[in-house]
Design a protein around this nucleic acid. Sequence first.
DNA 1: CGCATAACTTGACACTGTCTAGATGCGCCT
DNA 2: AGGCGCATCTAGACAGTGTCAAGTTATGCG
Lengths: 216, 216
Amino acid sequence: MIHFMTASSPSASRAASKRYHHGDLGPALLKAAEEELAENGTESFSLRAVAKRAGVSHGAPAHHFGDAKGLLTALAAIGYDRLIAVQEARQATAAPDKTSQLIAIGLGYVDFGIANPALFRLMFSSEKPDRSDEAFAASSLAAFGKLVELVQAEVGADPYSDAAAMKDVVASWAMVHGLADLILSGRIERLMGLSQLPQDETDAILTDILLRPIPR
Amino acid sequence: MIHFMTASSPSASRAASKRYHHGDLGPALLKAAEEELAENGTESFSLRAVAKRAGVSHGAPAHHFGDAKGLLTALAAIGYDRLIAVQEARQATAAPDKTSQLIAIGLGYVDFGIANPALFRLMFSSEKPDRSDEAFAASSLAAFGKLVELVQAEVGADPYSDAAAMKDVVASWAMVHGLADLILSGRIERLMGLSQLPQDETDAILTDILLRPIPR
DNA sequence: CGCATAACTTGACACTGTCTAGATGCGCCT
DNA sequence: AGGCGCATCTAGACAGTGTCAAGTTATGCG
């Protein structure tokens, strides 16, 4: 679950009670929104349902996030931070060599998508978030930066100055992104039955596939 | 544009006039829906706007498609037929060898996505269409069948009986799907400026990437 | 302590999808 | 040829949506 920094506000301790001023509503709304998203999916997402879940009136979210787009933008930005965290968890348990580390962030990308399908779609395949938002841009760029960094280590060239290396970045990203997107739409399951396999076998198959876009 | 078979009905010639019975409303609604989708995107899609565009009352679509899900399911099914057509157009202008033909359907997949971003998202990244619908299942399976067939020709093994070949299918699909999805969300453009390049250079880059998932 | 102001509520508005009952006219059948 | 069944389409109502404006509460600063 997302941390949401609920302990930062001095009045947050009694935040759940029915006071007129919630005291920490911003993070509380984000938490409620994520739960709604996870339970009902992106398509039937409702701002009023989020407000109700957080125990406030339907107009309250507007004061913190402007409109629905604002709330979803903030949520997507947090999503990128969490994506990075999941990738780093995979890196920590992976072998330290460059290739294993690159594969690890790919496996983390898929892990994240499977664990948070609606959030993943919101982040990557939705027009709802405002991509020019500062927090969104910063977090998504940080996630992309991890990929660039590890591809650069792998191929030994800076993607921003070497077109071939950038092509390697794009190929790696497209592969892992397509894999994740097809998995969480259920299209791979029908073909390979990944969910029936033990984790290490699934990882082996995905690793094989994730290695392909990288020149050897 | 989709054909929609408007000439098949005997009364379709005066279909545009203000008669009480439209005479060919099903196809007309699909056409209107596609236009709405192309202009406004998937997210702000409105059934009432589709009805208005087709010149009928807001309740009319229900009689032909049941509900919004039904209309979008039918539209997505047609989308798969068109995807196949775009892929076959690419095949027709490609070299006849097996590898070129496989790459051709990949380029067609990307072509289709760029030309119809909202429809692409509806087909692949939306929960709105009913995947158990017969027409949807048939058309999407036909599109997938093309991929299976060409991968089988390329690697010389039947994916349905050979796990390694199925892995090649999954890898190929994931690559082209991820590539298309990232391109139409604008994420590749920022990195490689594909739209600035002449078509043959873009094709060369995409071909390079699309070749990678296939074992050599 | 008083008060500006941020935080939140409440009600209204236009719009959405779906349901119901009613209006219309196409095409079949005798 | 004439009538009529029934698919086709309209029109109104309903609950639910996001957003806006105006009012209410209470926090923290001077």
